[in-house]
Design a protein around this nucleic acid. Sequence first.
DNA 1: CGACACCTTGAAGAGGTTCAAGAAATGTGG
DNA 2: CCACATTTCTTGAACCTCTTCAAGGTGTCG
Lengths: 271, 271
Amino acid sequence: MSPSQRIPIALSPSDTDAAEPSSGKQSPQTAVNAQTIKVACSNCNLRELCMPVGLTDEQLRRIDDVVAVRRKIKRGSTLFRNGEAFTSLFAIRTGFFKTCVATEDGRDQVTGFQMAGEIIGLDGIVNDHHTCDAVALEDAEVCVMPFDRIEELSREVNALQHHVHKIMSREIVREHGVMLLLGSMRAEERLAAFLLNLVQRLHARGFSQSELVLRMTREEIGSYLGLKLETVSRTFSKFVDDGIVEVKQRHVRILSTEALRRIVNNQAACH
Amino acid sequence: MSPSQRIPIALSPSDTDAAEPSSGKQSPQTAVNAQTIKVACSNCNLRELCMPVGLTDEQLRRIDDVVAVRRKIKRGSTLFRNGEAFTSLFAIRTGFFKTCVATEDGRDQVTGFQMAGEIIGLDGIVNDHHTCDAVALEDAEVCVMPFDRIEELSREVNALQHHVHKIMSREIVREHGVMLLLGSMRAEERLAAFLLNLVQRLHARGFSQSELVLRMTREEIGSYLGLKLETVSRTFSKFVDDGIVEVKQRHVRILSTEALRRIVNNQAACH
DNA sequence: CGACACCTTGAAGAGGTTCAAGAAATGTGG
DNA sequence: CCACATTTCTTGAACCTCTTCAAGGTGTCG
């Protein structure tokens, strides 16, 4: 929300390891990709992203009870899948996800990329089962928030109730933006908008405004943007030729945010 | 939800007029497109679409207090606009709307078409102002539901609370579907999916499974589907040539729902 | 009835896709 | 730690879908 605030969060796997040394004794037997840890929101550094502000200590303590459990997800495995029963929303603590939907005939579409502090699983509410897959693009950890508990508590904590509504509304507005992108933008505009969006969200989490590491493949970017992976690659190359970005595999350095903005806003010639 | 139930609702302007003869004394001074009427959900024939089921009489009466006011919107005018303060959600009683978002440089994108029983305005919750325009494509009437009252009441009526969550989740899932369409389908597939969706929703409201009247222009369809109006027109013509539909301007008769389904599911040859 | 909005159709052109090949990075197992 | 397999990325060339531009037709409303 307020882009000036810098929240020191580790996103890259190495930083995460440093912050949580070896993350306790992870027994492969108990749960390969669903290890659970008891935690608390009240001292979580992501609170400003996940939770409403201005809660009393009492209210925070009650929310701690709702967000009772954490779960680790290995890179490449799913947090939930299309068709699975919906019970909980998930707040991403660390890591990076994609969500994607599929048709019966096998086509699929990435509907979003989610990072620390963002909430996933909202699609499952309407029919009590999920309608998309959530796949971890790097080792991740989420807070599990049973939805019936959220509903229960948000009847009593007005700020939480409104917060839930805002999160869902924000997702609707975000998707409007994606529809605009998919419906009316050309390849360069789409990729420029994508990069600006990513770097803006990363910056809100304390990362650089100009450098980022893509956690997804060209194909996944293409799926999200309604383009083929070759087109994504070519467009990256064009940006490099034009001196707008530097690209080394998944490492991207933005040399001119202004140029990207001009591309998105379709201002063709404007030296 | 249950497609078998037939809810007798008037959608076409003439039927609407018959149902509410001359709609009282509409003074242009008071409010050109915001005439208000006191109403009640408890005897509304759209209740099954708008409201949770299994409410007690007491709960229904309290909801009547929330949905206190109706508003008429003339064809072509807006229910709300991008930038306007958000105060209420709207349940469509009669008529047909489009919602659209726009970029600074003038491009715009239709994000949805809404008909009787559907809720619009959810985009406004997150930032307390609307981020899209809602335009009536035919004379319409909506129930005004102040959102603070909805939140208040849904703290007390669990079924209402969950219903609000489901409505928002449903919108998120719907938009996933549109993203899939925009991101991975070809023109014919998009138009086929569009027609099937429209006729399915109309059928759920008691209309024909095979005949429909488009309330929007080719350009608006194109905007929604990420196509130019000429492409929409050409694709209609192709469907006519193939004997899949009959088209007379905005009157469409579906001759083979099965063929449309095959097109959407990309089953090229399958006699 | 004339003005205007909407729709259809044709022809040329652009943008993105498809197919293909090779390079670079990453992961795996010996 | 290195060799090999695999995945991911880049680039080229031909092709195809959709767009653009243009003209004319149809329908609607004051």
